[in-house]
Amino acid sequence: MSINLAAQVNSIMAALILLTSFGLLVQRRMYGLLHLFAWQGLFLSVSTAIVGYVSGAHHLYISSILTLTLKVVLIPYILHFLMRQLHIHKEVEQLVNVPTTMLIGIALVIFSYYLTAPIRELSTLVTRSTLAVALATVMLGLLMMITRRHAVTQIIGFLALENGLFFAATSATYGMPLVVELGVALDILIAAFIFGIFFFQIRTTFDSLDVEQMTQLKEED
């Protein structure tokens, strides 16, 4: 595979990651969200492997396999299991202002391109153009966490945000040092167990996973 072709395939992967980000933003159904998230993980993993192949940075293969097992298999499986246990897999979330959310999302993508412009100029890597997409993924994940009201959706937004961070690491620098990538992956794994416990705690205390009900703690006037 020539470098040019690889760069193009990588760009397609970046586009797909961005597309899934927008999909996550407006998907109402829980299973739909889960599938989109798994797809995003898969695109990320493929992109990481391609970059690893092109650059000869072989530790990226490990990173790619890590993403594959963690983001495509393990965490979706845990979430799937939790959704079954909590009987929320058929739930449909009410969304307000979908067009506005989309427009804000588009604005965020443009903003990301603007913000990363100086870095793109400095970089000599083939992947430099995808850094903006990575930052956009981070911001869209953030937007999803703000606009959504369901605990599971917020967590998926958080994980999508972490996907964006991994993607940023591969596109800006051909991946962080291995010890860092492993540590981050470990942290995500621990976080996965913690939010699992959380879902049960929220469910037994509040009877539903709508975080809108959690408004007791605020300053009284």
Binding site: I119, V138, F158, L165, V184, T205, F206, L217
Partner: peptide
């Protein structure tokens, strides 16, 4: 209920915050 609300807030807000710090670390590494 208040303890769980507090912990959820802590988890989400610090999680997001620290994620942004990781992005900063990636740029630093760059």
């Amino acid at each position: 209920p208040t303890a769980i609300e507090a912990a959820w807030k802590y988890f989400i807000l610090c999680g997001v915050g620290i994620a942004l710090a990781l992005f900063g670390t990636v740029l630093l590494y760059f």
